[in-house]
Design a protein around this nucleic acid. Structure first.
Lengths: 342, 342
DNA sequence: AACTTTTATGTAATCGATTACACGAAAGTA
DNA sequence: TACTTTCGTGTAATCGATTACATAAAAGTT
């Protein structure tokens, strides 16, 4: 039914050329006011809609930006994407979603696919297995497409990033556990080739040292971010000669697993054992025994990443801006670690 | 740096025309095998990448599909999107995300924006406030862009949908509560102008009638999908002359709120009171007192929606296919309603 | 009046790929 | 040999918008 109306159709109807129509619609000051009004009115009456694909081809800008995350069905990433979408939508950008499932090969493919699709920028969180995707990253940069890492980043020249201060997050969580009277604090970490896990760990370590406690490798367990992994970790920790009396976990899921396993063994929380997690997943506050966790303000992180992108996208100069935004983590103290007040 | 290589560059280098290059790359059988090989080899060596925007303009197909959801940071919608993305990615489609925040005006804008961006299809879940977006929907259909509703749908001719059997979901949840010995079951519903809430309610009602129980309007509370709303609902229900001894909630969040409020009042669950929710949000199984809930298999719903889209997208004929896929709900029985076994 | 400047619009190239049509050369047929 | 097919490639239009350059008309200047 509805035929596609182009500027040529409008031009023909008004006995002028498409160029004039285009200029009138783009508010080019060289167009006579009466002509402009006529064109605009006619365009409306003919229900003209600009063909974005033609515009994209001509300008080389698709008005799409790509977002690559490990998976979208995680509250953290979904919230970041929400922030990105809300910030970018008013600027006319559409958000394209890609998932890596922590597979560097997929990450690589996604990067090339997005460049192929000529997105105007890429916002991403890298996989947690050490990848060798330098070529793909540099391919993006060579094409002069802004690349911005959020949360999980890598050190690549010319790439901006938006992260939280994970060191501080680890530090305040651990400090809190110390304040609650915990004397031996274990740590569940992730893949330390990722800065986020490395830094949470370093913050944990520093908090111990700053408070006259000894740091012992044995209390650091490298585990996945899953309930099962948390259970297994507790199993290992409780077999130590001197078992810990608290856990600071880099993952809320592992923290939950730990709590379940501790309860299973009739260890009372927080009286005998305190637990703190990381990410402030929704379930941490819903639990009967709510879980203390470090919030990463994902919505803010998404919005901030979008803003960094907007700043960079119009800088056509070859000046590479490398902006590092670090957001402050916030500790949400809940029952799993509150000895002072229940 | 990296100049954009076009088929004209390849043509010039080989002293042939762009047409031949295009045909060679597209495996047109009219091209001599030796030429094809030469072109392909040269294209590779020059690092040629097809310009998708040019292709999109020429073909009128962007290879993007739009997904509109109320919000992305909800486990259910994020999972559906995950399913859609995973199913469509191998077919070369990119997924564009839009959020409505339950605002019909935004929904309307999103629809027009996506059509403007010339997506090849739109998969969506409508807002929960009665909208008047018929014009926008028909605009999509007129443009011959496949439109598919998932979960929350409207009755529009020519529009396919993928939903679960909400009636059955409501029925089996209610039946289960009856089986556990509950004698007076209340229901927390949502906006009944949406089929999903209407049908869950009807399933609930039918289960009562089929089992010799009386249906009473007073036990049906219309509430939002939030923890707070669940608490308020309990407050109202317990003031009735004959308070109920069970709740079937159309929302897990409201179910959680109800449980919190019941505990607050020292009503023991499931002994004195049983609760069942809907959606199988992750937290329902994480809780100490895990919550019985109806699973909607969001991943499957997403994949199925994508498949329906794929079926329709190539049917260029004007034959409107209207396919209604109904998935089976699955009741996950947990502690909040398990009297027989703890 | 003659010349310059300004204003408004037209002409045509461009973005990069696809494809209907045309055409010369080679191969097949009678 | 003369005529028909087939094969492989070139020519040029097309998708829809933007824009540098050209140009005619109007307005301003001396």
């Amino acid at each position: 039914m509805s035929e596609k109306i182009t500027i040529y159709d409008i031009a023909k109807k008004l006995n002028i050329t498409a160029a004039t129509v285009s200029r009138a619609l783009n508010n080019n000051p060289k167009i006579k006011e009466s002509t402009r009004e006529l064109v605009i009115k006619t365009a409306e009456s003919m229900n003209y809609k600009q063909n974005k694909l033609a515009l994209a081809l001509k300008s080389g800008r698709s008005n799409n930006i790509g977002v690559i995350v490990p998976r979208i069905d995680s509250n953290f990433f979904a919230s970041v994407i929400r922030g990105i979408e809300e910030e970018l939508q008013p600027h006319g950008y559409q958000v394209i979603i890609c998932q890596t499932h922590e597979d560097p090969k997929r990450e690589n493919e996604n990067l090339y696919t997005l460049i192929d699709a000529q997105v105007d920028g890429i916002l991403m969180s890298v996989t947690d297995v050490t990848p060798d995707n330098d070529k793909a990253f540099h391919n993006v940069l060579e094409k002069n497409v802004p690349l911005i890492f959020f949360d999980r980043s890598r050190h690549i020249e010319g790439v901006s990033s938006v992260t939280i201060n994970d060191f501080k997050g680890g530090y305040i969580a651990t400090k809190h556990l110390i304040n609650e009277g915990c004397r031996c604090i274990a740590h569940l970490s992730g893949d330390q080739s990722l800065d986020i896990f490395k830094n949470r760990f370093l913050g944990y370590k520093q908090a111990l040292l700053d408070n006259g406690m000894t740091f012992n490798e044995k209390y650091v367990i490298r585990s996945k971010s899953s309930v099962e992994a948390g259970k297994e970790a507790v199993d290992i920790l409780l077999q130590l000669d001197t078992p810990p009396d608290a856990i600071f976990s880099s993952s809320d899921f592992a923290a939950l697993g730990a709590i379940q396993e501790l309860k299973e063994r009739n260890i009372s929380i927080p009286k005998q054992f305190c637990v703190a997690g990381f990410s402030n997943e929704p379930f941490t506050k819903f639990m009967e025994l709510s879980i203390t966790s470090v919030d990463q303000s994902p919505l803010e992180m998404g919005k901030m990443s979008a803003r960094v992108f907007l700043e960079q996208v119009d800088k056509t100069d070859t000046i590479k801006i490398e902006k590092k935004v670090v957001l402050a983590p916030e500790l949400h103290i809940r029952k799993s670690s509150s000895r002072t007040k229940t």
